[in-house]
Design a binder for these strands. Sequence first.
DNA 1: TAAAATCCTGACCAATCGGTCAAGATAAAC
DNA 2: GTTTATCTTGACCGATTGGTCAGGATTTTA
Lengths: 210, 210
Amino acid sequence: MTHRAHNSQKRTRIQERNEKRILDAALKVFSSYGFRGSTIDQIAKMAEMSKPNLLYYFAGKEEIYIAVLERTLDEWLEPLTMLNPDGEPAEEIWSYIERKLNLSRTAPAASRLFANEMLQGAPRIQQILTGELKPLVDEKCAVIQKWIDAGKLNPVDPVHLVYMIWAATQHYADFEAQIDTLSPGPREQRFANASETLKAVFLNGLLPRS
Amino acid sequence: MTHRAHNSQKRTRIQERNEKRILDAALKVFSSYGFRGSTIDQIAKMAEMSKPNLLYYFAGKEEIYIAVLERTLDEWLEPLTMLNPDGEPAEEIWSYIERKLNLSRTAPAASRLFANEMLQGAPRIQQILTGELKPLVDEKCAVIQKWIDAGKLNPVDPVHLVYMIWAATQHYADFEAQIDTLSPGPREQRFANASETLKAVFLNGLLPRS
DNA sequence: TAAAATCCTGACCAATCGGTCAAGATAAAC
DNA sequence: GTTTATCTTGACCGATTGGTCAGGATTTTA
């Protein structure tokens, strides 16, 4: 039988464990160096595994990369899916920002992985962008637009508001090296300060002055 | 004589032209693929020059990279240096944001170059961060803090405000591939919409409600 | 125009790259 | 316990990598 990974069902315990180790290692490597800058040897070494053994579970570099992207994607999209159309606008927006910032704190590698892919022009994720992300964004932007039309939020272009939230939150994951240098101190404290600042600017910026 | 580039003075016209061609090409390549993901051959090809000839002007890959970083740095820092302590806070902040957004529009490769470097942990730029950027940021944050103390701006952590401005503006350069997919249309129009949104959120977010 | 400096190139090199393969080690099933 | 399927590895392959070098082409200088 072909011994390819992802054999739909019937996964051995060893298979389970090793594929996880590989994907964990691959996330670290790919998120730092991007697809082109990463090597299979690097991933194998980080996974504490020989290169041929790693290639026993995944057919090639690209397959590992895609697998990592897909495994990370859901986690990455979840905050936006949770935006509740029936909630209070200010609270919904803020808890969305909080969730995203929290993700930058707890899963910075995931953010960097996507950032690297985008920097290279998103060649291997374009279909995901158009197929999954775009409908989701369109849907949520319509919600935000309704809030605006109802006078609950200041009139801004919803999609650019979303960009702004993404940018401001993911920045703490993607540019951690820079931030570390410019504002040293305990990591948790930094994120607390970031949260305060984002809250002040976004909520004041979006809520109408009545 | 050693025929190394950067021979301080005495630069031939050919030298001038070729070094420029190399650095222009290197910026494009490095900004897309990062240091590790880029190859000298790639740069040479883009500069329309043989690899040995390219290496006649620069001693190696790393030297090209550093040269590109340094040439790009000033342009990248300029908007912040122009923040005028004696100006009107709202206007100064906004024109800073405008300058940064403008840079994302006209020089996206420069932004991506730094983004790539940060994603990899800023190994080759750490000294620049602490030596040049940090003092500048500290200085301008003090200015912002004074504005806050004078009641001209809402109380926020200045350095996190700066991060937020960086993030929101550079996002349009670094994630252009994503943005292109999610909000198609003329590039100029997108930047105009971005500008509107940033203006609304930042100014409303920062100016006290009196 | 001839000498000298600069510029440019094809051929080459060791190291690393992604990936293969045959064969041995280990675990599972009977 | 032995057969069978799964797992693991060292050795290897062609392609690409960063970089060198001897020598030829071109430009500058005197």
